[in-house]
Amino acid sequence: MGRPPAEPDVGCLSESDDWPLWEVFLRGRRGLAHQHVGSLHAPDPELALQNARDLYTRRGEGVSIWVVRSTEVHASDPDDQGPLFDPPADKAYRHPTFYKVPEDLQL
């Protein structure tokens, strides 16, 4: 399944003259990984970075920003995981609650 077609009743499906879409990733503080925070429109990488700084760090959040063209993001298909929303249930050993430890221990 690819990207869904635009909803028919929204109309106006003319060739867009919009600036392209960019995904924005922010490192909240040192020691953390970059996290996806949202997206924005910009004509090029430099302005995308500036816009991201203005938009997503207005309150001083973040020490480092990545921007990636949305079209460059390749995503897995959620349907490949099995019927709709079923989480993978056969690898319980990946989760910490799988293991019994004495309750009075901090582990």
Partner: peptide, 11 residues
């Protein structure tokens, strides 16, 4: 001229 620029100019 664009919404992103609203935010920038206000900054």
């Amino acid at each position: 001229p664009e919404l992103e620029e609203e935010v920038a100019l206000a900054n």
